[in-house]
Amino acid sequence: MSASPPSLLIAAREAAAHQHYPQGALYMVATPIGNLADIGLRALHVMSLADTVACEDTRHTAGLLQGYGLHKPLLAVHEHNEAEAALTVVQRLQEGQRVVYVSDAGTPGVSDPGARLAQAVVAAGLRCVPLPGPSSITALLSVAGQAGWDGQFVFRGFLSPKATERQRDVQALGAEARATVLLEAPHRIEALAKDMALLGERTLTVGRELTKQFEEVAQMPANGFTAWLQASAHRTRGEFVLMVHPESSDGPREGLPADSLRVLDLLLVEMPMKSAVRLCAEITGQARNALYDAALARKKAGESGESDSD
């Protein structure tokens, strides 16, 4: 990192100290998912104020804090002891401590421990404060490049480790009109890739080791995922985030029913295209992507007509 830890903590204080950080509150702090430089200044400042840092892995978090020049008492709160350790955290909050909770990487409670802890704190009538940070989910979505995508996606996280259930889940993805984001660990990625072939030519964007030294982003048909993994031995290593794209807006689609198109036309007269498509999908049950394509074609046709009349 470009600044030494003391200088970094000074910058964090100058940037974030104007905000009030109450005592007796739990701060859910998102930490880098691989690159230490991705930490937020507000997260650093709050960690510097913490009386206790509760964490998924004390050894990992000790190294993380040391990288920023911080040394704090640590309390282990992980998936195996979360319910019991939450009582300790609540007690410390009731004593007026500021407690920070961090998972090993990313946002606590999102495919990581933290949800039970937050629930216990809220149930005790205490404050739980979120501090956002790096996310492999939004990082991958930002580079997936889905034309005509309206920003809607489904976050499924990790699919079942059981083959039959996982295959059933993958088949269900084929019927999902929205983009779907999955996470997977290296020891299960080959099994998932094999099952993804059930989606045929559906576009898949793969993020491997996002923000880390050997970061890799690639796009391919779902049925080509296994071949991509096998092309290089290192590709089965590291953490994965995957986006199953919605049905492509390129190329021909099945024609929409006339009554659905009539509803779309009426709505387009009254509201912006995105709102018209969303409402039409709710009314007619038709896929948003198909309706978006139809609305876009109508817009282009209208613009062409205006040009011809000039």
Rank of each mutant, 00 (worst) to 15 (best):
F214H: 14
R237G: 09
T164C: 00
H71W: 05
P132K: 08
A12S: 01
E282N: 08
A227T: 13
A177L: 02
S304F: 13
R166Q: 10
G151V: 08
L87C: 08
D169I: 00
G151N: 03
F214I: 11
Q119G: 01
T211M: 09
F225R: 01
V102M: 06
G145F: 03
L87G: 14
V277N: 01
S275A: 15
R208W: 10
M271D: 03
T205H: 05
P161W: 08
A290R: 15
G255W: 07
L49Q: 12
G238T: 11
R59W: 11
G157N: 02
A227H: 07
L242M: 15
V241C: 14
A25S: 13
A85Y: 06
S304W: 15
V129R: 01
K300M: 09
L291G: 01
T205M: 11
L242E: 04
R208L: 08
R92E: 12
E270V: 08
D310F: 12
G148I: 05
R127Y: 00
L210Y: 05
G207T: 10
L204F: 06
V143K: 08
G34N: 11
T284R: 05
E190G: 07
P257C: 03
Y101P: 03
S7A: 15
A15C: 07
N223E: 11
V89Y: 09
A172P: 03
Y21F: 12
M196W: 02
S7Q: 15
L192M: 05
A297L: 13
L36N: 06
L296H: 07
A163E: 15
P113K: 06
F153V: 04
A175K: 14
A227S: 12
D293T: 14
G133E: 02
V121T: 01
A218E: 11
L64M: 11
P186D: 04
K194E: 14
V46N: 01
G224R: 12
Q119S: 14
D38L: 10
A144V: 14
V77K: 02
D38T: 06
S232T: 12
C55D: 08
V277Q: 03
P32E: 07
L26N: 10
L296N: 05
A37P: 04
F225I: 01
K299C: 09
G285T: 13
K194Y: 00
A175N: 13
A86D: 08
L279V: 11
P6I: 04
Q230I: 01
R127H: 12
R188C: 08
T107W: 00
R288F: 00
S260L: 05
H80Y: 14
D310H: 11
V29Q: 03
T58Y: 07
G24T: 03
N81I: 08
R188A: 09
A172H: 07
H80K: 07
Q19A: 13
A233S: 15
M273H: 00
S48K: 04
G151T: 07
G302H: 13
Q97D: 14
P161G: 04
V90G: 06
Y101I: 12
Q152I: 09
A86W: 04
W228M: 10
R298F: 12
Q23I: 00
M196S: 08
G285F: 13
R92Y: 00
D310Y: 12
Q167H: 02
R92K: 12
V77S: 06
